[in-house]
Nucleic acid binder design. Sequence first.
DNA 1: CGCATCAACTTTCCGATGCAAAGTACGCCG
DNA 2: CGGCGTACTTTGCATCGGAAAGTTGATGCG
Lengths: 119, 119
Amino acid sequence: MSEPAPYAYDGLDRVLHERARLSLLTSLAAHPKPLAFSDLKQLCGLTDGNLSRHLGVLEEAGLVEIHKGYEGRRPLTTCRLTPAGRQRFVAYLAVLERVVRDAAEAARQGDRGPEPLPA
Amino acid sequence: MSEPAPYAYDGLDRVLHERARLSLLTSLAAHPKPLAFSDLKQLCGLTDGNLSRHLGVLEEAGLVEIHKGYEGRRPLTTCRLTPAGRQRFVAYLAVLERVVRDAAEAARQGDRGPEPLPA
DNA sequence: CGCATCAACTTTCCGATGCAAAGTACGCCG
DNA sequence: CGGCGTACTTTGCATCGGAAAGTTGATGCG
């Protein structure tokens, strides 16, 4: 037991644990169909530059699949979660949930002394 | 109205939304009494250097209070949440919780693939 | 006493990163 | 033809997190 570290949260992968990317993944997870660049931009409130970059990171990590095509004559980039991406996202979420539980409990505990026990 | 961005999660403050710091804050929130440097190190699984740095950041941001004293002749640094720190932590947690809910729901939705694609 | 060791931090260094601003390419009015 | 808008990409920069090295002082040992 040289490593108790109950709050070390190793599962908070740096690729996922990032506002913009988290936002993107949530958007993608919520929509079974691929989403267009501009849709993601709107949904996540990102600038073009940042969206492009973060999508690149997610793709590199194998979390999303990006398809660059055309709609008529306009370029249209669409994006969807890969199965692995979905899996990792779910795993990450489990850790996040754990964090929230730990912390909420902790916050309650430290907030005032002994609280009335909820039923 | 120009900003729907339902997944933009503005509340994910960069100072709090960071593995090491999140870990520290959770530890601190869980313990009403101030914690010692070495305790935090153990609890969060951090190296000396990184702990020092992150504590500095948290202090600078007014989230924690650091007290440098002595226990006998050894230096003993202790640390506790400030009221503002606790408040911001709780607020951050609320956002996190929202993320988890959104995402869990999203993941469930996208999981089953029977999309209603009417020919 | 002198020296090596350990504990408790701090400081430095470096590659990676997020964000913003500028750049590119192309289709579409008028 | 020429400006405008959409759809992205690239570049630049300042910041950041993490590893390693440094500091200070107490303690054990021969």
